[in-house]
Simulated assay, not measured.
Amino acid sequence: MTDNSPTLSNKMPSDAESQSPSPAPTKRTWNAFLNEHVEHHNAAIPLAWQSFLTGLIDLILYSRSQVWVGFQTGNMVQFSGNIAQYMLPDYQRQPLLTLERVLSILSFFLGSFVAAVGAKYLGDRTRKWLFLNSVLQSCLLWGAAAILLTRPEDEQPTFQYFPAVLTLSAWSMGMQAAAAQKLTSPHFATTVAFTATITQIAADPNLFKLKSAVRDKRVVGIFSLCVGAGVGEMLLYANTNLRGAMAIVAGFKLIQAFMWFLPKPSPPK
């Protein structure tokens, strides 16, 4: 009778196979790290920080100029009202506000356009583009802060300098909004406008449930925005005032750049 049972050599691996070294782990180069893709579900911290900065910068600039640099819906409505003032007889017109509002709208648009072009060439979700985008935003805010630091603290907005401050700030906010939009976060949106987010929270079927990840992240975005506005009001009340507050915002934006190194990478689509 033939013995069909497997031999010992078929059961056990050879000595050479058992002692062969495991393949060395692939080293993570700096270039590979910068080219990693970031998805919104791993980027809650930097997106919440951006929402915080939106509330901060919009509050401190609107308090002095009555012009938004992030909430462009308000600017468009107010600018349309300014235009209507020129059509009405014997009506008090506001040429400086009219100019500042249209400059804010245009600068936000151009900032978004530049960010879209940069994302096209560097990858809209790569760490290197998100980092570079935030650094450029910080430089724009530092420029606005530098202009303010050359002026007396209590000086009211004039044609001489304040349009440039708003232009640089709105350009920065446009770049932030475009970068956030490319991440297509359903919770933080563009980290600038949250009207739709409020509607989504109200319409959420899990609104009154104890746990709801989607609802909670949306609430975090709105909460971050409101906290930023509160911090901005405190900075204006303190000795920092507008000039110091703008410099702080520029520094916070630079911190934002390094926050893009925190999220776990995701495979590119």
Rank of each mutant, 00 (worst) to 15 (best):
F52I: 03
I147T: 08
T167C: 02
L34S: 04
A84T: 14
G74D: 03
L168G: 05
Q176D: 04
V77Y: 14
T195N: 03
P6T: 02
L122G: 09
L254W: 00
A245H: 05
F79P: 04
W49F: 15
N75P: 01
A116R: 10
L110E: 01
T167Y: 04
K11S: 12
N10A: 14
L61Q: 03
G244R: 02
V38S: 09
Q19L: 11
F109A: 11
P21N: 03
K209N: 14
F258P: 00
T190H: 00
F194T: 03
Q137K: 07
F52V: 11
D90Q: 14
A189D: 11
K211E: 13
M12Y: 15
N75Q: 10
A257Y: 04
K27V: 04
A43H: 02
K211D: 13
T126F: 03
V117W: 09
L225C: 02
L34N: 08
A238H: 05
Y237N: 13
G230F: 10
V219T: 06
D58V: 08
S224G: 01
Q160G: 12
P6S: 07
G143D: 02
S224A: 15
A238I: 00
Q181Y: 12
R215S: 05
D154M: 05
S266R: 11
E17S: 05
T26E: 12
G111C: 01
S212I: 01
R243V: 14
N42I: 02
A229G: 15
W260H: 00
L130E: 03
K269H: 15
T126E: 06
S63I: 05
S266F: 11
P95S: 12
P267K: 15
Q92E: 14
A44D: 11
R93S: 04
N82M: 12
P265L: 04
L34I: 04
L106R: 00
I222T: 07
S14E: 09
L97V: 10
P13A: 06
G228W: 07
D58T: 02
A84N: 09
G118K: 03
P163T: 09
A115P: 06
T150E: 10
F33V: 08
F79Y: 15
K27Q: 13
W171R: 02
Q85L: 13
V114H: 03
K211Q: 15
W260L: 02
L103I: 15
G228D: 10
L122H: 06
L8R: 14
Q94V: 08
S224L: 07
A245L: 06
N4Q: 09
S169G: 06
T29M: 00
L236T: 08
K209G: 12
A202S: 12
P265F: 00
Q181H: 13
P152C: 07
G174P: 06
Q66W: 10
A16D: 11
R127C: 11
P21Y: 00
D15F: 14
Y161C: 02
F188K: 03
V165H: 02
D154Y: 03
G118W: 02
A238D: 05
